Simulated assay, not measured.
Amino acid sequence: MKSMKTYTEIPSLLSKAFLGTLSEEEERALQQWRDESPENEQLYESEMNTEYIVQKSHEVARVNIVNGYMNVLLKRKRNVRVRRVRRIVSIAAGVVLPLLAVVLWYGTRERIEDVSEQVASVIRHGGVKAELVLADGTTRILGSEVTDSLLVQQGANIVVQNQGVSYCVDSSVVEERYNTLRVPRGGEYSITLSDGTIVYLNSESELRYPVNFVGRDRRVYLSGEAYFDVVQDEAHPFIVDMGNSSVRVLGTSFDVRAYADEDEVLTTLVQGSVKFSAGKEFVTLEPGKQAVLGKSGSIETREVDTYLYTAWKEGVFAFKRQRLEEIMKVVARWYDVNIFWENVSQKEVTFTGKMKRYDDFSKVVEVLEMTGNTEFVIKENNIFIREK
């Protein structure tokens, strides 16, 4: 059992440390706590970060954290076995920094188990998995549990490993044969094409590609989302075909998002240069720029933080003032859940922050519920979203 000192003194000491009002005795007590474990020291450093405090203070200004936090505690009491907290520090509503210290403290040390243990065991994060369809129609299920193996196809050896597949081809073969890599909801996978280009496929995505590039260009066909790290070859441009639009590159890194159930096709350039085209329109992108193809068929360009559109391949959900409806589309594909909106107004709630893709769904709900007046009701793999 944690001592009462942990629950009552440390949040107050953290707020005083930020304000620079610690007495010598309090400073020694805080230092002793910091020296007890690396986790304590990490927590101290994060809460002394000015940008972090400012961000949290803005959240305080937008929502009633005190009521929200108490509601979460009550919900936790209903849904799971609760570790008792003997005393909650009394906080004056007008004192922002001590309030932040307590909220952040409990948010970090007491991970609020907002979803029942039964639900947490049902809705798990996605994983490394895909289906490989060879040119002759043969299929092979791929995943992180698959042992290393070698598939022999006419003109190519396909190396299958637990994190992805790669192609070693016979350059003398001139016949163009296509394979297809399908990544289901709740999956992600990577592939190294015959030219050395690496493609990271996100959930619910499909890539059709030649076993060996034999023509004037290197053309692949994508639906869904993928990040491309293209090997440079000026004589053979690399083209990503999304049906009603395409991206043409020589050698670069970029993300393409082209889901059938979304209104926009997005191409985000990380480095190099690409030409995005749709019909007779085209734009040439520079690093940090994004091409947006809307339902009207016109192309717009905008400057973006590329991390927000590529963090998924690093195992992170990253959002900045993103609408909840858009966030839940991303989350639903990864956790393979169905979303139902009981209050349409909740679609317009915005969120800024990062979450780990390999956390269980309960962690995602915990973070999203604490940012406003949104409530998630979970029934098996169906998620009902409503106003609190």
Score class of each variant (00 low, 15 high):
4 M>R: 13
9 E>L: 14
10 I>M: 03
11 P>R: 01
15 S>R: 10
20 G>I: 00
23 S>N: 11
25 E>M: 00
28 R>F: 10
39 E>R: 10
43 L>R: 02
50 T>S: 11
59 E>S: 13
61 A>N: 15
62 R>G: 15
70 M>W: 12
70 M>H: 11
72 V>R: 08
79 N>F: 11
79 N>I: 09
93 A>Y: 09
107 G>R: 07
116 S>Q: 09
122 V>Y: 03
124 R>F: 01
127 G>C: 05
134 L>T: 06
136 D>W: 10
143 G>H: 06
148 D>H: 10
149 S>F: 10
149 S>A: 14
159 V>P: 00
174 V>E: 12
180 T>M: 04
189 Y>R: 01
189 Y>I: 00
198 I>Q: 04
199 V>L: 05
217 D>Q: 07
217 D>Y: 02
237 P>W: 07
240 V>D: 07
242 M>G: 09
242 M>I: 09
242 M>E: 09
243 G>A: 08
253 S>G: 02
253 S>D: 02
257 R>Q: 08
270 V>M: 14
279 G>S: 11
292 V>L: 12
293 L>G: 06
296 S>H: 08
304 V>L: 01
306 T>P: 05
308 L>K: 03
310 T>Y: 00
310 T>P: 01
318 A>R: 04
319 F>D: 04
321 R>D: 14
326 E>I: 09
330 V>N: 07
333 R>H: 08
338 N>V: 12
344 V>D: 06
358 Y>R: 01
364 V>L: 12
373 N>D: 15
377 V>T: 15
380 E>G: 09
382 N>R: 15
385 I>W: 11
386 R>Y: 06
387 E>M: 09
388 K>W: 15
